[in-house]
Amino acid sequence: MRSHLKAPAAAAAALLALCSLSACGGDSSSGANGGQIKIMVGGLDKVIYMPAMLTQKLGYFEAEGLDVQLLTEPAGVQATTSLISGDVQGVVGFYDHTLDLQVKGKEVESVVQLSHTSGEVEVVSNAAADEIKSPKDFSGKKLGVTGLGSSTDFLTKYLAVKNGVRTDRITPVAVGAGQTFISALQQNSIQAGMTTDPTVTQILDKKVGKVLVDMRTPEGSQEALGGPYPSSSLYMNTSWVNGNKETVQKLANAFVRTLRWMDGHSPEEIAAKMPADYAQGGKELYAEAIRSTLPMFTTDGVMPKDGPETVERVLKAFNPNLKDAEVDLSRTYTTEFVEKVG
């Protein structure tokens, strides 16, 4: 896959250098020259973002001489806001935000692509299972998403449009993930919704819902979205990347090392490395959630072929901001750093 270099955004870099903690909500220049790097994760306990905490638990950040603080925000859209405001230097979240941000005048790029599928699952409550048998039946329904403007919101709208349902005929409801999502299903606050593991596995174990669309595997992504859908990634402001290449290379080294480790270990071995409180449904159920989601991850951090094009097609199907916009996909990701990992 191609790599590409970008000219430093001098004005943006100068602004970041001058920006004070009080003025910008955070010090965007921290992380350079050995300082602490803050990475916001769109839900640290979600299996789709597992490489973030796993990299820390395996000691790979430390091995690279990095001081990384992992923060959590249940919806990726809030994590992106933290990045743009300068509160954090990186986000582990969905790649599709880089396209959405570009048309809004923000230059953000994926520097490590952790996955080649979305890892998302559309589930339907048992109570609504007879009336919602596919996304064609979404009209008039309340559909759960992690947050409005999040990637689950994006993908829910795409599934609706692809199946002939206008976006104004569905009602997205922000219900987060985990127990809040499960409770919303049980209380009929939503009839269906999009979530990830371990929530999916817990829903099936509690028998409160059923799988409607499964996008945890390349095959499921191809069927639902028409191609690979690169999702979980480490993305950062392009200006920060260009000004801190040595640090970004160390981050890429750590994350790719983790992806390789995951590829060579069992779900049970991976689960044993994670914080105990992530396995709220028990160790066996948590390992099963990891097993179901493992197919989504890359082993090298490289953007999958045709992945950005699939994401662009999906977003343009329903997002008025992108529909007629020119998106330069080459500016939404780089393979410069992962290709240099030894």
Score class of each variant (00 low, 15 high):
residue 5 L to R: 15
residue 12 A to Y: 08
residue 16 L to S: 14
residue 16 L to N: 15
residue 23 A to K: 14
residue 23 A to F: 13
residue 24 C to L: 03
residue 25 G to E: 13
residue 33 N to A: 15
residue 35 G to Q: 15
residue 36 Q to G: 14
residue 37 I to F: 09
residue 39 I to E: 06
residue 40 M to N: 10
residue 40 M to G: 09
residue 43 G to M: 04
residue 43 G to P: 06
residue 44 L to A: 12
residue 44 L to C: 08
residue 53 M to Y: 07
residue 55 T to N: 11
residue 58 L to W: 07
residue 63 A to I: 01
residue 67 D to F: 04
residue 78 Q to G: 14
residue 78 Q to T: 15
residue 79 A to R: 07
residue 81 T to I: 10
residue 82 S to L: 14
residue 86 G to W: 03
residue 88 V to I: 04
residue 98 T to H: 06
residue 98 T to V: 04
residue 101 L to D: 10
residue 102 Q to C: 07
residue 103 V to L: 05
residue 103 V to N: 12
residue 105 G to I: 13
residue 106 K to E: 03
residue 106 K to T: 10
residue 109 E to F: 09
residue 110 S to P: 09
residue 111 V to P: 00
residue 113 Q to W: 03
residue 113 Q to H: 08
residue 115 S to D: 12
residue 116 H to P: 02
residue 116 H to S: 14
residue 120 E to Y: 01
residue 125 S to V: 02
residue 125 S to E: 11
residue 127 A to F: 07
residue 128 A to V: 14
residue 129 A to E: 01
residue 138 F to I: 09
residue 138 F to T: 12
residue 140 G to D: 07
residue 144 G to T: 06
residue 146 T to Q: 14
residue 148 L to M: 09
residue 153 D to S: 13
residue 154 F to G: 02
residue 157 K to H: 10
residue 159 L to M: 03
residue 165 V to T: 02
residue 165 V to I: 09
residue 165 V to H: 05
residue 166 R to T: 12
residue 173 V to W: 06
residue 174 A to S: 08
residue 176 G to L: 01
residue 179 Q to W: 13
residue 180 T to Y: 02
residue 181 F to T: 00
residue 184 A to F: 01
residue 186 Q to A: 08
residue 186 Q to P: 11
residue 189 S to V: 15
residue 189 S to R: 15
residue 191 Q to G: 13
residue 192 A to W: 06
residue 193 G to Y: 11
residue 197 D to C: 00
residue 198 P to M: 10
residue 206 K to L: 15
residue 208 V to E: 00
residue 209 G to T: 11
residue 212 L to R: 13
residue 216 R to S: 13
residue 216 R to P: 12
residue 217 T to F: 05
residue 221 S to F: 06
residue 224 A to G: 05
residue 224 A to W: 00
residue 224 A to S: 01
residue 225 L to A: 03
residue 227 G to T: 10
residue 228 P to Y: 02
residue 228 P to I: 04
residue 232 S to F: 10
residue 232 S to T: 01
residue 235 Y to M: 02
residue 236 M to V: 14
residue 238 T to M: 11
residue 253 N to K: 12
residue 254 A to L: 03
residue 254 A to Q: 03
residue 256 V to K: 04
residue 257 R to G: 05
residue 258 T to P: 08
residue 261 W to I: 07
residue 261 W to E: 08
residue 261 W to F: 09
residue 264 G to Y: 06
residue 265 H to F: 01
residue 266 S to C: 02
residue 267 P to W: 00
residue 268 E to N: 09
residue 273 K to Y: 03
residue 276 A to G: 12
residue 276 A to S: 13
residue 277 D to G: 04
residue 277 D to M: 07
residue 283 K to I: 07
residue 286 Y to D: 11
residue 288 E to C: 05
residue 289 A to V: 06
residue 290 I to T: 03
residue 291 R to P: 01
residue 294 L to H: 04
residue 296 M to D: 00
residue 296 M to S: 12
residue 296 M to L: 10
residue 296 M to E: 03
residue 298 T to Y: 13
residue 301 G to V: 05
residue 303 M to W: 05
residue 305 K to Q: 14
residue 307 G to W: 06
residue 315 L to D: 00
residue 321 N to T: 07
residue 322 L to G: 10
residue 322 L to V: 02
residue 324 D to F: 09
residue 328 D to F: 05
residue 328 D to Y: 09
residue 331 R to A: 02
residue 332 T to S: 11
residue 333 Y to N: 04
residue 338 V to C: 06
residue 341 V to M: 02
